[in-house]
Design a protein around this nucleic acid. Sequence first.
DNA 1: ATTGTATTGTGCATTTTTGCACATTGAAAG
DNA 2: CTTTCAATGTGCAAAAATGCACAATACAAT
Lengths: 295, 295
Amino acid sequence: MNWNDIRYFLAVARSGRLTRAGSMLGVDHATVSRRIASLEAEIGAKLFDRSPKGYSLTGAGSDLVPVAKMMESNAIKFEATIGTSGEKLSGPVRIGVPEGVAAYIVSRAASDLCKKYPLLEIQLIALPRKFSLSNREADFVISVSRPKTGRLKVQKICDYSLHLYGLRSFVEEKGPFTSVADLHRVMGIGYVPELIFDKELDYIPLVDPNFRPRLSSTSVHVQLEAVLQGAGVGIVHDFMARRYDDLVQILPQEISFNRSFWGIVHEDYADLERIKVCSTAIIECMRNELKLTPS
Amino acid sequence: MNWNDIRYFLAVARSGRLTRAGSMLGVDHATVSRRIASLEAEIGAKLFDRSPKGYSLTGAGSDLVPVAKMMESNAIKFEATIGTSGEKLSGPVRIGVPEGVAAYIVSRAASDLCKKYPLLEIQLIALPRKFSLSNREADFVISVSRPKTGRLKVQKICDYSLHLYGLRSFVEEKGPFTSVADLHRVMGIGYVPELIFDKELDYIPLVDPNFRPRLSSTSVHVQLEAVLQGAGVGIVHDFMARRYDDLVQILPQEISFNRSFWGIVHEDYADLERIKVCSTAIIECMRNELKLTPS
DNA sequence: ATTGTATTGTGCATTTTTGCACATTGAAAG
DNA sequence: CTTTCAATGTGCAAAAATGCACAATACAAT
């Protein structure tokens, strides 16, 4: 199969139009049309329904979008692979970090740091609970709420946003969603209400106190996976959702959350070189990835 | 960039010869030659050293192989994707499940169940701890160790295996590994030793009591991400690793773990239809995915 | 009802890619 | 040392892909 066809497929899936897909890819819309036709012929399935309004994904087409997205993600990675150099820093650093940002953003920074400093040890504690710095439960904590008092050095890292997402095909099938009341037509995906450890993460009552997620998990990976599988709609971090452009926002004017990440270290250890280097690198990485600055 | 070029790149990287790569892909060796040249020109890096003996990867080329492999894996997945149907079952089901299997296997079963039974609610509690069924902390638990006593219905779901993995390029660069002692040359990635909740997951002392992971996390997602980024080597569930064919096993004869998943329900609730249906479906899904039967 | 806009689809010319055939090179075998 | 084999690289013709221009259709605006 022509791997480029997957690229064309994805562009059309995202944009819903040959003309826009062509623009996105820098080719004529006719080319896109032929590539899609060729792909459909080759795999023996109709991926889009055509109309003068544009191209809309069929069920079969929707099923293919997640993998196409992964392919694109890997293609982007292919185009960015370089090396760095190493210095000396050593010892363990324990970092308390929310689960989603741990896997999607901080893990990269941690890996880079470990490569750069061969004697460094990093422990990412991605548990859904708060950490006591005075008890040295962690050396550096990334939190979604600003800590109250304590001999802590606190800085706001950046804002991040969340929206209600659904798989494009799912939204097109179940939509349109013009008000929050429409959401009762579909399944909600979210945190297990009784097990939410920080009220900053308790989004759903803010949307609709009567809305209860039917598929819930303590793990944002599981929540995301469920949304990606078109099981329903869920509040997803935008920085996670952007890896999957077949996720579309639903009612973005009505349902939009901004939260902040806070970096916290204990005053007594703030000047430890390895804690300083690690926290700085991770904060920078987060800011770069989230493309936001402290307000 | 031409995504097909990545395919040609990978074929040459694997085979070491244009002629063999051509055969693998069903094209002329001249085509492969031109595609590689085109790719190198586009990215501005020499990926292969040429000789009458064939093509051998440069450092830059080696760095690209893992992502190319992931793209191939994506393409294979793209070519295989299908759908299912629905019935009536309702109420909440809380399932305690280990994190890795939660995201990689059980989330799919849970999504499918929620689609099939529109009135069903599933909560996947993917926390690194044990659950009390008598306290109704969960309705169904998937455990990595067989529970001792209690009014429980226990069944072995399946075996699963883990091996020590590294990214292919990483292993080729840092290898060969001929004994466990060789592992001290590279960084270990694993669980945070003090926070392991089930001794069945404490793999590393079984490998080498003196080996300590330098990058550790409570989250297997983070561990996996770090291995995938070529930060070091880590014990990975084979069912996770197989999504990434550029992960290779290291010392598979010496370092190989078999563990089992156990399904546990409370005797009093075992006959509840929704618990029965859910546990059955999830167990079947796990067995299918893991392709193993109880011994 | 008419006009304008934006979409998809297609014929044909142009451009790009690929296959074929052959030259060159290096290493192995005799 | 010579011959054979297998590799890479390249010119040219053939095939395939793409761009351009235009037709057809549906819908929005007037």
